[in-house]
Design a protein around this nucleic acid. Sequence first.
DNA 1: GTGAAAGCGCTAACAG
DNA 2: CTGTTAGCGCTTTCAC
Lengths: 357, 357
Amino acid sequence: VSLILSGREEYVRQFHPDTVEKVRKSADRLGYRTNLFASGLPSKATTFFAVVLQEVGNREVSTWHHWAFEGDLLAGIIQAASERNVYPIVATAHPQADEAALRPLESIIAGGVFGTIVRTPGPPLEKYLRSQLKRGQLVVVVFPSRIESWPTNAIDVDNVAIGRLAGRLLAHHGRSRWGVAWFGKKGADPHLLRLNGLLESAKEAGASVEMFQVPLGIDDMGIREVLAPKLAQRDVDGLFAVDSISSVGTLYACLKLGWEPGRDYNLVGCDCAFWEGPSLPKITSVDISWHETGITALNQLCEVMQQGESQFETVLVQPRVTPAATCPVPAELAGDSPPSVRASAPAPTPAGEREVV
Amino acid sequence: VSLILSGREEYVRQFHPDTVEKVRKSADRLGYRTNLFASGLPSKATTFFAVVLQEVGNREVSTWHHWAFEGDLLAGIIQAASERNVYPIVATAHPQADEAALRPLESIIAGGVFGTIVRTPGPPLEKYLRSQLKRGQLVVVVFPSRIESWPTNAIDVDNVAIGRLAGRLLAHHGRSRWGVAWFGKKGADPHLLRLNGLLESAKEAGASVEMFQVPLGIDDMGIREVLAPKLAQRDVDGLFAVDSISSVGTLYACLKLGWEPGRDYNLVGCDCAFWEGPSLPKITSVDISWHETGITALNQLCEVMQQGESQFETVLVQPRVTPAATCPVPAELAGDSPPSVRASAPAPTPAGEREVV
DNA sequence: GTGAAAGCGCTAACAG
DNA sequence: CTGTTAGCGCTTTCAC
């Protein structure tokens, strides 16, 4: 019965068709389903993996936005997982969770799953993950807080490519005097990488780049107030912003000055593809695709597992551009590129994938 | 070893303290963790349950909003689950998924979990769930599309209470001529229930209720255009809206007329606690707490499981009011909604999209 | 073609 | 106090 219901041709072939028929009939007459937990035991586990998402306080506005992204990541993971017949056990961890609070997590990470996908672990969890890695446990870190410390086993966005792409968009519109709202040297690492990307394509395009200092921790309206007077005095025609808040703030500043997008300037922002204000132009945005990141993480996890490894070279996911009013996007730079243009492409799927039962 | 590591006092007591010590020491020296999948086998499964979330197309704005809610529900489930030491296996199902597409889902629902939480199943999935229920499988339906058909085993929001609460808020401000943007008889069922709740408290407060017809499927700006002229002709001082779009649309209409909230009118909306427009007043909103719904669903699941039952009477979760500018909320009405309502406005987070990775 | 049996890692009951 | 053992539901190998 086991062999027949496994569905694998090599086995089923060995039985008399009548027997096969009979077994299958009664199986679904009885509503039989194989117990996934038991089935993983004999052969080593390959069915369940763990996903650790980031937990944030409840009942705040930020919670709400938070899940919009986190959920998109999870959706990507789930989608890819369903294609491979593996199932996620989902948990959350607070970034500041201490060792004690991590105990339940450890139960599941080391409790029989074939691997774990973790989104931006805090330091204690990161430490635990490394110890597991050393034990040969399979771990994939998504968006580690310090990418330098994860040369292997991580998935991150290609921040340099974000800035580079933004620059190319501005260049395409003939903009040559670029400006960036900048949080100063204390700006987070990814911001710096994005800026570097922009500088790269500025050089390529022969454009100048001017940085407009704005205070850290300010909101979009605040940025407007700080930025508008600075912009008014300078002669810039292309604008870039390294994150969603400064993207919106920069747009507000331009609106305040009465500048018209497309005519007076072009603006490319980051991570604000879904932002919209009533009767305001939408912002052309270069974004991380959390969904695609999820897919990549899961695929990486499964492939490494199938090869019996527990390490893989860190993968950078390419950004996507969402065209909008502030900077029209030519077809050749449009967001369809990602799958083909990857920094370090994951190995093409090996032939003997995995029999889908 | 098994007995000692189980940690149960009744067992551990029986061993010599030295032995206990020795066993524990070597266990964590070896980094031993019990295999959760194997441990569930002997005694019947009580560790893993399934969660089926609603799947929507990728890469749309709606996806983004979608996960904000879906994720909040999941977060509630996970939070409650971690307190009970049970773990969710998360899957998604498209509302229109047909029988074939449901096959993988069935593997997990009937594959050894102790129960399943499903959010708004489509008809084919609903049919399958009923068959499982009949088999004694534990199923909890969250937000069923037709609550009448789930007298047992469902968790839903108390829509009547939403309208009632909104009415009391208007009454508290001495408003007596109420108006509602109404999508007509074709308005979805929950809308009708909310309206009934409002009518209930209108009777209580001796207020009149006028319905302003707006076309179905219109957006917030559209509602403004339709509603403003109607409002201009009528003498209403209290406004209610049954969903987020009409809440925002109603606010826009009032703004267009130059009405000032608190002086000329009060507005209570629904499901728009997190909405904000630049320099616009925020809307006092009566909301479903998805997070709390998640907690309730999980608790219900576990309690029914522990009692060895597979049925329970459908639970209605009480709404929460989020106070804002359009209708200040008195303490006694804030406390009205169970269990512990935060009568404080949600933090004015700097439109914080997400923390920088 | 088909039946039997040895585990997978664990729990829980049962002898001592 | 400690050791042994019979399963849990399944996979997979090995006889016949």
